[in-house]
Design a protein around this nucleic acid. Structure first.
Lengths: 197, 197
DNA sequence: TTAATAGTTGAATGAGTATTCAATTAATTG
DNA sequence: CAATTAATTGAATACTCATTCAACTATTAA
């Protein structure tokens, strides 16, 4: 993480202010002026660092996807020993308080842009393919230790993520924590069943 | 379907123009002026029928959700006989050309509003709960005919939809039709397996 | 036919938008 | 210290936004 000069620091600061404002106001209705106000700087300074709004949105999407990836990587690293890794990962993936680390409102707004901007589509697919690859590799390792018997690790990794994404997609519509938790538990069980754990 | 007077016709016309414009330009960047232009009417006429932008967005979300629900209901009705209903439904749910009936870009943009507008959250959850209920009832019927042995139809219906939503969420990021189809096929198989078919 | 209502128009309002630019201050380098 | 570069400012640009309003034209009812 270089961020040596002021320029890079400012750029990061601006993107983070964008992210925070977008959480409150919504991604599409967050203007350069609003970001500037939250940082108490003139709007022209933001334009100085990001030549256009498009460039700024681009930087935000990068920021979001990196954040998303980091949360996953952190989950991987936190496992005590390798044999505990898979169940530990599944448990954390299907738990609401883990999901709360990231703002879904901004995430889905950014995702919606995938349908009109091919470059965003590529970014999103890249990150999600990386995540699937990581899980797939973990499954292969667990296969070798005899923990699981997974015939097609790539396919299974995909299935687990389908289940994960679909579950969060639904529970975000639900009001009570109780309801959300019940569905997460149900999906977690199904995930275990798919893995043969 | 009343739509007796001109007022109701105009209102529907406006919402549909909103939807079509949103497909091309994106939901959040579709203004009243743009909708008006596409209909070749002055913006003030739109405001006359929908007192505010918020009311207009509300009407669009209703329109989208009704459209979504209708697609499902049509799929239900199209089954030749009741014994064919379940496999026929699953096949159509997990096929891309069926999904293409509805614009996902607009759908996810609307979904993103769920995080800031409780009234939209309620609308979305209502529709999705109806869909799950319908599938659950179908599973119960299939249980009675002995077609399947589903211990918890409500939970199973949820799981099928988790898988469905998660699969579409992912394949929308993918470029090639081939890739998309492979994942849909894989998920369809898992759905069959979950149902014990 | 007259009166009342509903549909439609175009112009105007004020606030907010992204972006440009010249001027000014701060930091860095020779 | 002097010269150069980078960071910052504030004002101004042209444009789009949602919304208002008075005037106008159909349509309908009495």
């Amino acid at each position: 993480m270089g961020l040596s000069n002021i320029s890079d620091l400012r750029k990061k600061e601006i993107v983070e202010a964008f992210y925070k404002t977008a959480i409150k106001e919504g991604l599409e209705s967050t203007s350069i002026a609003k970001i500037a106000k939250s940082l108490d700087i003139p709007p022209s300074l933001i334009v100085h660092y990001y030549k256009s709004k498009d460039e700024l949105v681009n930087a935000l999407i990068n920021h979001c996807l990196e954040l998303y990836l980091k949360i996953f990587e952190k989950t991987y690293d936190s496992a005590i020993d390798s044999s505990q890794m898979l169940p530990s990962l599944i448990n954390r993936m299907f738990s609401k308080d883990w999901n709360d680390l990231f703002d879904d409102g901004v995430y889905y707004s950014a995702y919606a842009m995938v349908f009109r901007e091919p470059k965003f589509r590529e970014k999103f697919s890249k990150i999600h393919k990386i995540l699937r690859l990581k899980l797939s590799e973990l499954l292969k390792e667990c296969n070798e230790t005899g923990m699981i018997k997974c015939i097609n690790p790539d396919q299974t990794a995909n299935q687990i993520f389908f289940l994960l994404d679909g579950t969060y997609f639904y529970i975000n519509m639900l009001e009570t924590y109780k309801e959300q938790n019940e569905h997460l538990e149900s999906s977690k069980k199904l995930a275990y069943s798919i893995l043969g754990l």
